[in-house]
């Protein structure tokens, strides 16, 4: 099997793209506003902390894994041209994305630590999710570890969601793709409105759905305070979600063809 060569190519490619993404994020969020304030003559008012968000790298990473997870067809095309089958393509992509997520999370940690020290106001948390899970254990190291793991799982969930969407799109021609990309969100939106309206009219109470959703993120009863959500719940539900989505993406990847 050519997994190693395939992995190496995918990882290098992702790494390069991730670097560019960080760069563009910094340009878009930090440099451009600064230039604008210069042009407007308000440079004195410009403060770095008001422009750099706490979770900059985390946001970039999350969007990045969603988008690259979704870029299925181009990679498949290139690999089949180079004598590498769908299974190896899928496997190497999962490995490369996983490593990127771990690496990205390490960058998030470093960024968060620097932010806390240099820019942050008191009370800034290292992770966004600390707000929910950061005080579950008595031991702060255990808390850090738990939140880190949940964050990793969350980003992985986003990535596999991207993969499934991308692979579904990869099965269709460009025209159908556009149709799906435009049509499905509209349909979902309409569905949502209908549900909300129905819910309000109390003909259909969707409280069970809400309860289920809060349960799987760790609100096991009504007396839980923020920061003390059960850490095991998102770990289990996240892992299950990832496993299911990966299976779907794998099955669909085996169906890819070129020309479509």
């Amino acid at each position: 099997m050519r997994t190693k060569a395939a992995f190496k190519y995918q990882f290098q490619n992702l790494l390069k793209l991730l670097g560019w993404s960080y760069l563009w994020a910094v340009v878009g969020i930090v440099v451009l506003p600064f230039i604008f304030s210069l042009i407007l003559g308000q440079a004195d008012d410009y403060s770095l902390s008001s422009y750099i968000p706490n979770g900059l790298t985390a946001i970039v990473l999350t969007i990045f894994v969603f988008v690259t997870g979704g870029m299925t067809y181009d990679g498949f095309k290139l690999f089949i041209q180079n004598g590498i089958g769908r299974k190896t393509y899928f496997r190497s992509k999962v490995y490369a994305l996983a490593l990127i997520i771990v690496l990205g999370e390490a960058i998030n940690l470093v960024y968060g630590a620097l932010y806390q020290r240099l820019i942050g106001k008191s009370g800034t948390r290292l992770f966004g999710l600390s707000v929910l899970y950061g005080d579950y254990f008595k031991n702060s190291a255990a808390n850090l570890l738990a939140v880190l793991l949940i964050t990793l799982l969350f980003i992985a969930c986003v990535a596999v969601t991207g993969m499934v969407i991308g692979t579904i799109l990869g099965l269709f021609s460009r025209r159908v793709q556009v149709l799906l990309i435009v049509g499905i969100p509209i349909l979902m939106f309409i569905l949502l409105i209908v549900l909300v309206v129905l819910n309000d009219q109390s003909s259909l109470k969707l409280t069970w759905l809400w309860q289920f959703l809060v349960f799987i993120i760790g609100v096991v009863n009504d007396n839980i305070h923020s920061g003390h959500l059960v850490v095991y719940a998102p770990m289990i539900s996240g892992s299950v979600y990832i496993a299911v989505m990966l299976s779907i993406a794998y099955y669909l990847t085996l169906k890819l063809r070129v020309p479509r």
Partner: peptide
Amino acid sequence: NNDRVLNRIYLMSEGNLYPSRMRVGEIFKL
């Protein structure tokens, strides 16, 4: 999906399966 076999075969086809923005030299390397 058998790499052991697929990796011993090259098909040159009319379809363009290489990334369109990639340079010739990079395609060779890849």
